[in-house]
C-alpha cells in the first residue's frame, strides 16, 4: 500500500507539473470549433478545377477542418459583361481561427489563384466569400458577417442548404426557409 501511494503521489506530481505547464494552451479553455461557411465561385480558366483546388486549400488551412462540401452548381452569369457561366459551391468548415484571420486566409487563397478585381460583376478566377461564422454578427470595414448579400443569392443558398439545411443565419432565418424564398430556376446541380 505504501509503495503504491508513493508511486501514485509521484505520478500526481508529474501530472500537476504538466497541468501547470499547459495551463495556457494555444486555444483558450472552452473555446470550441466554430462552424463557418464559405461560398466558392469561379467562371474563368477551368472553373471546376479551380473550385476543386480551392476546396483542397480550405481543407489545408491551419486550425480548420473541411467537414462538408456541396455539389457544384452551374449558374448563369449576372451583370452587364458577357462571360461564361459561373460554377458555385459552398464549404462547411469547423475552425478555431477568429473571423478576421479566416477572412485573411480566404483572401490569400484568392490571390494565390490569381484573382483580378478590375471589373465589378465581371469575370473572376476565384471568389471566396465568408458567408456565416457561428452565431457571430460582425459589421466592420471589410468584414460583414453574415455576408450581406447571401440571403438573396440563389447560387449561395442552394449549395448552402445542402451543407447546412438546419443552420440559422443570424438576423435572417433558417437556410432552408431562405432558399425557399429565392428564385432558383437556371441553377443546375452537377454532382
Amino acid at each position: 500500500m505504501g509503495a503504491v501511494v508513493r508511486v501514485a503521489v509521484a505520478a500526481l506530481r508529474l501530472a500537476m507539473a504538466e497541468f501547470v505547464a499547459v495551463a495556457a494552451p494555444v486555444t483558450a479553455p472552452g473555446s470550441g470549433w466554430q462552424p463557418a461557411y464559405v461560398g466558392l465561385g469561379s467562371n474563368l480558366d477551368g472553373p471546376v478545377e479551380r473550385i476543386e483546388r480551392a476546396f483542397a486549400q480550405l481543407a489545408a488551412l491551419p486550425s480548420t477542418r473541411l467537414i462538408a462540401r456541396s455539389a457544384l452548381w452551374h449558374t448563369p452569369p449576372v451583370g452587364p459583361v458577357a462571360q461564361p457561366p459561373f460554377i458555385n459551391a459552398v464549404a462547411g468548415l469547423l475552425t478555431q481561427l477568429p473571423p478576421r484571420a479566416l477572412l485573411e486566409a480566404l483572401l490569400a487563397t484568392e490571390r494565390e489563384q490569381g484573382r483580378r478585381r478590375e471589373v465589378r460583376w465581371g469575370p473572376r478566377t476565384l471568389d471566396l466569400d465568408l458567408l456565416v461564422y457561428g452565431a457571430s454578427v460582425v459589421d466592420e470595414p471589410g468584414l460583414q458577417i453574415p455576408h450581406p448579400e447571401m440571403p438573396h443569392r440563389a447560387f449561395v443558398l442552394y449549395p448552402l442548404a445542402e451543407v447546412a439545411p438546419a443552420l440559422w443565419v443570424p438576423g435572417h432565418g433558417r437556410v432552408a426557409s431562405l432558399r425557399a424564398a429565392v428564385e432558383g430556376s437556371g441553377l443546375e446541380r452537377r454532382g
Binding site: W33, P35, A164, A166
Partner: peptide, 10 residues
C-alpha cells in the same frame, strides 16, 4: 455541428 450551425466542443 456543421449541419446545424452549432459550436463544437471536442
Amino acid at each position: 455541428a456543421v449541419t446545424t450551425g452549432a459550436e463544437l466542443v471536442l
